[in-house]
Design a protein around this nucleic acid. Sequence first.
DNA 1: AAAAAAG
Length: 604
Amino acid sequence: MRTSWSDSVANSASENAAASGSFGPPPTRATYIPPHLRNQPPCSDSLAPPSLGNDRVGYSGPVGGSRWDGGGSRPDHGRSGHGSGGRGGGGWNNRSGGWDRGREREVNPFGDVEPACGEQENTGINFDAYEDIPVETSGHNVPLPVNTFAEIDLGEAVNQNIQRCKYVKPTPVQRNAIPILLAGRDLMACAQTGSGKTAAFCFPIIAGIMREQYVQRSHGGRTVYPLALILSPTRELSSQIHDEAKKFSYQTGVKVVVVYGGAPINQQLRELERGVDILVATPGRLVDLLERARVSLQMIRYLALDEADRMLDMGFEPQIRKIVEQMDMPPCGMRQTMLFSATFPKEIQRLASDFLSNYIFLAVGRVGSSTDLIVQRVEHVQEIDKRSHLLDLLHAQRETEVNSKHSLTLVFVETKKGADSLEHWLYIKGFPSTTIHGDRTQQEREMALRSFKSGKTPILVATDVAARGLDIPHVAHVVNFDLPNDIDDYVHRIGRTGRAGKTGLATAFFNENNMSLARPLADLMQESNQVVPAWLTRCASRVSHGGGKNRRTGGARFGGRDFRREGSFNKGTEYYGGNSGGGYGLPAGFGGGYNPAVASAWDQ
DNA sequence: AAAAAAG
C-alpha cells in the first residue's frame, strides 16, 4: 500500500525530470516530479545494495595462505601446510599473489564517492583540538595509543586506502582502539558515531586477515566461512558499514559482503559464493543463512558489534546470543570481539561481558571543551499543537536558508503510522519530504535515504530506524517531534547532526507524555552546557528522585564508564590520554569539533 | 507500548 507522498506521485510523467531544485517554491501536485525520480537512469536496479559489485572469480571460502605472500601463484585451497614461509620478510611491500586477476576488475569504491571522502581538501585542520579530547581506558595492560597512521603497521595496501580516503591523522577512537585491536585484545568502546569508529574496527580486521594464515578446511556444499563478522541493528547501517569496509579493503584481496533482510536473498547468496572474508550483516538474515547452512561461523576470528548496546537490548539480545553462543562460532577467547557504541548502559555492559574475554574498556569524549556543536532546545508543545509548531520552525528555517542550498532536517516520530501521516501533511503544506521506517519496503527505505541525502527531499520523517549510526552529512536540524522514552535514544538521535565539524540544532517537543524523560534530559542538557528551561527543571524535580533506568551513572562525560570500575569489582585501571580530572561536561554522542570544510577520518 | 530484525 502506498502511503507516502513520494510514492503517490512516483508514476508521474518523467518529461519534467529537469524540474527546478527542491528548495524553490513548493511544486504543485499535477506537474511535479518527485526529486528522487529526476535524472535517474531507466531501470536502475535499486534493489541491489550499493557497491555489491564483486568480481573476483573462482574464489570460495577462506584461502589457505597469507595475503602477505609475495608468491606468484594462487594459494591452494585446502592445503594445510601452505605458507610456512609466507611471512618471511615481514613486509607489506609486495603481495602480488593470486589475487591480481580479480583485483584488476575490482570496482573502485573511490570512483563515485560522495563528498564525505572526496571533494574536500585537508587543509587547515586544527588537530591541536584533538589533544584535548578526554580518553579513558581501563583493563589489564592497555596498549599505548598512537598519534599517526604511520606508527601503525597496517600494510601498504591499507595505507593507500587511508590516503584515498584523505585521512591524514587518526581520530581519537582510532588512535586508541587500533593498537588495542592489533594487539589482539577484546574491546568495549564508547565513541560517538561520526568519530571514525567504523575504520577503527575495520583496519585491524583487514590487517589481521591479511597477516594471518588461514587454513581452508574441506567442508562440503556451498557453505562459506567468513573470517570476520560485523553485526549492526539496521539494514541501512549495515549497508553503510559495507560501503566503508569496501573502501578500506580495496586492492587488499580481502573480500567484504553484506547481507540483510528485505533484499533478494539469491543475489546475496551469489555474492557469498564468490567469497567472503568479512561478512557485514543484520541479525535476522544472518540467522536465516546460518540455518540454511549457507554460512558457517566456524572460521570467525573477528566479531564486531556496532551499536552494541542496541544489539544487546531486549529486542535483539536473543538473536545475538543465538548467533554468538548457539551456532558454530568459536568461543570467547578463541576469537577477537569488539563492541562499539556511543552509549553503554551499565546493564548492557554486564550482558556484553559474556561475549568478551579480558577486555579493555575505552571511552572517548568529544573534541574541544567549550564549543558545543549541537545546540539543544526543548520546547513545551502539546500534542495537538505539534504540527503547526513544526510548520513554524520549518518556515522560519526557510527564511534564513535562502543561501545555503544543502541543509537537511531530520524529524523523529514515535510510530511508523505517525511518520507516514506527518510526511503526508508536510507535503500538503508545501514541504517536500519523505519518510523512512520499518513498514516501508527496503527499496523505498533506500530511496528515501538517497533522496534525503541528496537534498531532493530536504525533510526526512523517521522512526528510530534512523536514530543510530547513519552518517548523513548536512543534517542541520534534528527535530524530536516525539521524544523517545530512553535518554540514550535521544543522544543517538541528536547525534545525526553536528557532524563533520558543522554546528547542529536539535529541537525537542516536550509535554506531559514525556515526564519520565524530564530528569535525564535536564541532566544531559546541563552536562552539555545547554540552556535548561526553568519549566523543565521544575518537571525534573517533580518526578521521582530515584536512580531509575534512565539515570546516567558515573557522570556523562563519555556517555559511558567501565562498569567493572563501579563498586568493589575493580580490576585495576590505567589511564592514558590526559584524563586529568573531569570537567568535560559533555557526553559522547556530540559531533566532532574540527573546522568545517575539511575531510578527515572523522568523516567516516 | 513502539521500533527493529526473516518471510
